[in-house]
Nucleic acid binder design. Structure first.
Lengths: 187, 187, 187, 187
DNA sequence: AATGAATGAGGCTTCATTCAT
DNA sequence: TATGAATGAAGCCTCATTCAT
């Protein structure tokens, strides 16, 4: 089953516009189509599971980061959160891009929702433990930070920024989020 | 041709992902497939053109906003930019969502690039005319603002935020961007 | 109408597998499809007419040769007939090949028959006027000669013989036909 | 796969030129289109393979004849070669005709070349073993004979000769070829 | 008489899925 | 449980032909 996932990613990643077919996935995974259909009732389920697995791993990573930052300053938390997410999305950019694309013909609402809940819970817990800050409206602040960070990374991908520009943006994003927190504190 | 675009959007909008067939588009547009193919060499070209048209209109709108803000304060500019983009994306949310999705099996790099260039030019020109601020590194600041704003809106869409949450986020985004500019000024 | 014929030949001749479409023929001929359909009731009629025209010209050429050989020796006649046909088929080989191909989806029986009748009449008349030979069974001999000569040329085309081989074959064909006539005389 | 070939021939044979569609072939062969496409990547490949198979069988037949004539007199060889080819092309005339036609939208150069090489090799070997003749320029003589024989048969088909005329021509062709060999010997 | 946009039947091909082995 | 040949619905696209202007 991991072989199937790997094969799917490889095909999704491949530049050639050769579409992702179940036969091709099975072939590359070294199993028969029949076997593939033993694991996944249909093609959508495969792509769905692939994304679920990816988001699961991503959520875990974020949760780990959040746990590790328990009790730190808000600034440190921010940096850790941004760095983790940025790193996760950037280390295998083609995979990131491929998954972004694969999701198009999928109703991934549930997936996103689950992921969002987990992340929101983790980051909310983290921020509420900040040693130096008390958040008046944590829910809204948290939503804002998470949405801005995740959205910015995605948009950076879409623009196809080169490494320099991406690094610069990474730094500026941190700056901006810090400024946001400062502004909230002074309000 | 406008009828064809409209039909495409309608089908893209309709639930049931894979409804977009050239035959169906033609049918709904009230023309024959042959006619459709007289305007667009193939299906991809149709989707491409649809997105081009959309981004064209969006760019124009942003440019208009930028022109109108010439010489204003940076804060006003920020608000105008965010409001315009938010409004543009929000007024027909299903269309926005549909186009986001439609782009998946398309090489829209060129499209994005053209759009980005136009927007960057317009916002850069706007910010450089700010009556109250001098930007040390306008290019980077501009890229940051644009990427953050656009990315946040997209992510908000993906999360399927309800109106209240969205409105709140909208406000917080403005706040954050303002805080960013203030922080830059005080640096 | 000549422009249309010319355009058809050009498209038929072109290497690209681009198929012969009425629209393309009209375009290249510098007229509208509508006009093309004023001259030819349908596509087949066009191709038919093109072949008719070609065979007409070829028949005329053969008839002229035959008339010119009236009263000559059989050997001279043979040489003149072979040379004329060979020359006619060889001077624009792509055209020859294109027409051979174009005929595939056509019922050209009538065309061939008409052509065959004309040629048979001409060659029969010629051979019967030979100063040095009396043919016991002129009809059969004539059919044999004509079929062999025409068939050989066609087969030479199909094999794609190079110039040297083709020239050699041309000479040998003459030799063979002469030997045939001699053999008949000695029988 | 044989069923598919048979179906193709049947459809090719049927009057009404343009009957050959992949769907129809599959239907008549009693398989699904999908299956057809498992054997042949596309329609052209099917027609190509059909011709390849036909020429393969024809070549084998000619080779067998040539082997059987090893050491015979040249006259006997000639007769055997002509009879074999004539017979092969004549026993199922509609098939012959259909294949001649089918080849029109095909690049069959390679096919013809392979066939020609095989036949040339076989007939050359045969003629060089003739008990009663030494050929000064075997290559040229062989090419001439083969081209003349094959071409004549094809042309006879095109003319749609009735049985009597065809039989007569068959005899005369043999006569002519024999005369050719005699002439060469006396030169 | 000429135009050429519009038509739409129908061809080729793909690919998710099944099921007998 | 694994296989993979077979299926066939359905998509994309072409192109001969028409007809309003």
């Amino acid at each position: 089953m991991d072989a199937i996932f790997e094969a799917t990613i490889q095909l999704l990643t491949r530049p050639g516009a050769e579409n992702l077919t179940t036969t091709r996935v099975a072939e590359r995974a070294g199993v028969s189509v029949g076997t593939l259909y033993q694991y996944f009732p249909n093609k959508q389920a495969l792509i769905y599971a692939l994304n679920a697995r990816y988001l699961e791993a991503l959520a875990e990573r974020i949760e780990a980061t959040c746990r590790a930052q328990e009790g730190q300053t808000a600034k440190n938390m921010l940096k850790a959160l941004i760095d983790t997410y940025w790193q996760a999305k950037t280390e295998r950019p083609e995979v990131t891009r491929a998954l972004y694309r694969s999701v198009a013909d999928l109703d991934n609402t549930a997936l996103i929702e689950t992921f969002a809940h987990r992340v929101d819970a983790a980051t909310t817990a983290m921020f509420s433990s900040a040693s130096d800050t008390e958040f008046a409206n944590l829910a809204e602040v948290n939503l804002t930070l998470v949405t801005v960070i995740f959205g910015t990374v995605r948009n950076a991908f879409e623009r196809g920024l080169d490494t320099d520009a991406a690094d610069g943006l990474h730094g500026q994003l941190l700056l901006m989020c810090e400024a946001y927190l400062s502004a909230l504190a002074n309000a």
